[in-house]
Design a protein around this nucleic acid. Sequence first.
RNA 1: CGGGAAGUGGCGCAGUGGUAGCGCACCCGCUUUGGGAGCGGGGGGUCGGGAGUUCAAGUCUCCCCUUCCCGACCA
Length: 567
Amino acid sequence: MRMTKFLVRTLRDDPADADVDSHRLLVRAGYIRKVAAGVYSWLPLGQRVLRKVEQIVRDEMDATGAQELTLPIAQPLELWEKSGRDKTYGPLMFRLEDRKETGFCLAPTAEEVITSTVANELSSYRDLPMNLYQINWKYRDELRPRFGLLRAREFLMKDAYSFHTDVEDLRVTYKEMYDAYHKIFTRCGLTFRPVEGEAGEIGGDINHEFMAVAAVGEDDFVWCKSCDYAANVEVAKRQPAQAMPSENESQQQPTRVHTPDMPGIAAVAQHLGESEDVLLKSFAFDADGEMGLALVPGDREVNEFALARAIAPKKLRVFDDNDFAAHPELPKGYIGPHHPSVAVVVADPSIRADHPWVTGANEVDHHITDMWCDRDFTVGIWADIASIQSGDECPQCGKALSVDRGIEVGQVFEIGTKYSTALGATFVDADGVSHPMVMGCYGVGISRTVAAITEEHHDDKGIAWPASVAPFDVHLVALAGKGAAAEEVRTAADALYRDLRAHGIDVLYDDRDASPGVKFADADLIGIPVQLTVGAKGLARGVVERKLRASGERDDIAADGVVAAIR
RNA sequence: CGGGAAGUGGCGCAGUGGUAGCGCACCCGCUUUGGGAGCGGGGGGUCGGGAGUUCAAGUCUCCCCUUCCCGACCA
């Protein structure tokens, strides 16, 4: 493609409304343009990348035997009423009416339509299993679209739905999808981990979220760089804390100290000259009407999900301002675990440490030092309720864990029979008995993946696409100028352009009458993996110059051997 | 939906009541050509929208719309 004929306009300045790198660079380099909040046009460059990712997904889906189809984006609300999701999705759905005032929505996902389709088409166990997918635009009227393509209101998604006679059969497809996703995101050049999500309310549903590691991600997760362990922060574990019995109790008795106007861990630690991890954090909660405290070291947070599991079946309710007002004996910021009105004490095993604790005195502006676990306060329930931190030991391999943010680029989910029951997708088994089909669903955010790849593959000059998703294979820069060799350079570059294309290589050819600096800067910004420069200097030596965008490596290639060299 | 910020040419911005500007981009001419060139000339703006105050509104008042950030929310 000749740049003089190509719709690509790069911007020298960052767009004012973009503050994450992917958004900023994709706009600056001419891949996308914003049309409304969370709605983007994909310019030709962006379209090419979108198609590349889409094709990788299609390849890997087809390889598993899944079948592609296309489902409507405009969907009758009636279907959503059958599953009850018109209410649960609520304002998240874009809604519209036709001229007869029949309600429609723009598809946020397609369980209802596909299930209803399958209900009409399949009816025997002999038809199952079947896995159907589409690659299509989805719509969610997000409360707050942000971060460019990462949380858009219109986004391209691959959604697959599988139908089975039973859960065992579903698990086979689930594993196939899980493996296919590994291949997809590996081919896309992403650093990612599949993270086991929290079990559904019923407890049986399995799901994994594929998280691309990125500072701008919206979900925290824990992962090990040495093995494949990864988990949502809500369910993450670490090597069990050393439950050290407190045998070294000193003779030092608890001492009340004045800590005026210091309701925070950091201030108290500084005031006493102690480190934060010898302060005891007491986190007040209500468990079905009983007062409870959760104890973790001062440098950790309470994992509320773990705490809820620890006190089950009692229900957790974190203390709010009203609760504190109702319990003046537990002054916020100065709570200690030794108060008689506390019925439930849950502590992380790391509390049973070989040192005394500084705790709140249950009196405003006072703390107590030299509090020993078991001697000065007792614990009812021991549970891993302390938040995981970077550097904690991996529960699988013992190496250091990392807590990072991730972009959810894919998800595999066991649905069960919710939709097949609601929409009548049943099959007849070998004995002639009718059952609802068991379903799974599997999503890949394609437009979001483009953004995630950009987040991982860029530098201060611009994007550096992995070859698998780059809009072109080669960026050919002709430095013709108007000097004596101009015609020669132009002729050589034109010939190289034709030659590369004849060999099936996609080339973006900068044939513009622009200065070298502009062309180099644009090439780095656009981010095609291989840059070839044809200039008078090189031609005089019989070479064109090659630069690899990602590494910056440069070398010379004989002008007559370029195609062979870069294939 | 709460808190904050902002809407002026394609992009980035200045403009505190009196003739709408600057940089980049764009068009023409000349010069220049290995890391975002120089000079000269030129085109392009209902100043987000509406109502109001005023002799006079980009600027002041009110209402609305849009966009961005933080939070809440998020198969």
